[in-house]
Amino acid sequence: MRIRALAIRIIRQFLRDKRTLALLFLAPLLILSLMKLVFAGQSVSPAIGIIDIPPSLASKFEGTNATITDYKTNESAYSALEEGKLDAILQFTGDTPELLLEGSDPSINKAVLLFLQSSLQTGNSGIALSIHYLHGGPDMAPFDSFGPVLIGFFSFFFVFILAGVSFLRERTSGTLERLLTTPIRRSEVVLGYLTGFGIFTLLQATLIAWFSVDVLGLYMVGNIGSILLINLLLSLTALTLGTLLSSFASSEFQIIQFIPIVIVPQAFFSGLFNLDAMNPWLQKLSYIMPLKYGADAMKGIMIRGEGWNDYQLDVYVLVGFSLVFAILNVLALKKHRSM
């Protein structure tokens, strides 16, 4: 009897909370769809540049799934490799074929090597391939490649939850109401939160970066200051987004519900998984995800040693996201005080 009553009460509560209901049924579908799109899309096709390859060899590449581009000069091929348009360059020095891999992503390295092995083997056995790397090296593990993305992801994730829950607490405990009976401006409330959390965020970013590089031994050739800057900006975006979305949650539980909606899709699009296999049209979704910009910059700095000129666009986008979220936050506070 009691059990039945309890069950009915829970069902009624669920039915009243449409969002929890939607989460229960729709979120798993969303995540499963994403996984399917990422893992079961088109197969990865390596982009290889060739310089002065004997025609007999070049003909072997015809009809394969690789994108082969013939470069006239070394310079044009190298710059294409640096810009990430190519995955590798194949050329001959004397009789030995020489392969220069871009190197940032071990899974692409493997795909290129596999492709060359299978296409060169037929009829032309015994050629020793000399392999070089533009970035990274043969020892680079997959973790070195997605480690930088994980650093950004965890900063984003935890700051988002923390900011969301604490701003919600401020609301449910009545202290926000009390705070708003003082002459503080709404923008000051948001900026105060940004500053207070910003300090912890900076500490967190430093700790995570130090731990990943010095303790976990993550591959790192860039500037540690750049890493901290990007991580801080990424956390700031998480902070402003977390406080903004907490306006639309009425309990801690509802903050948790934002994880599969806001956090998980970003993980998919941020570079943890190779998106080359995904429908190009869907790949464009990554442009609205803050984590993508942070992760791109982190990866560039840590693996390719990129400088300000290379990642400045990511910085501008992250600052832009934070600004937009912060302004929306100020507007959302109008719900609690008319002025």
């Binding site: 009545g174 202290t175 109401e177 009390r178 009976t181």
Partner: peptide, 14 residues
């Protein structure tokens, strides 16, 4: 608001 003192029904303390 500088001239008002307001004490709500909930204690609203940290």
């Amino acid at each position: 608001l500088q001239s008002f003192g307001y004490m709500a029904q909930s204690d609203a303390l940290y």
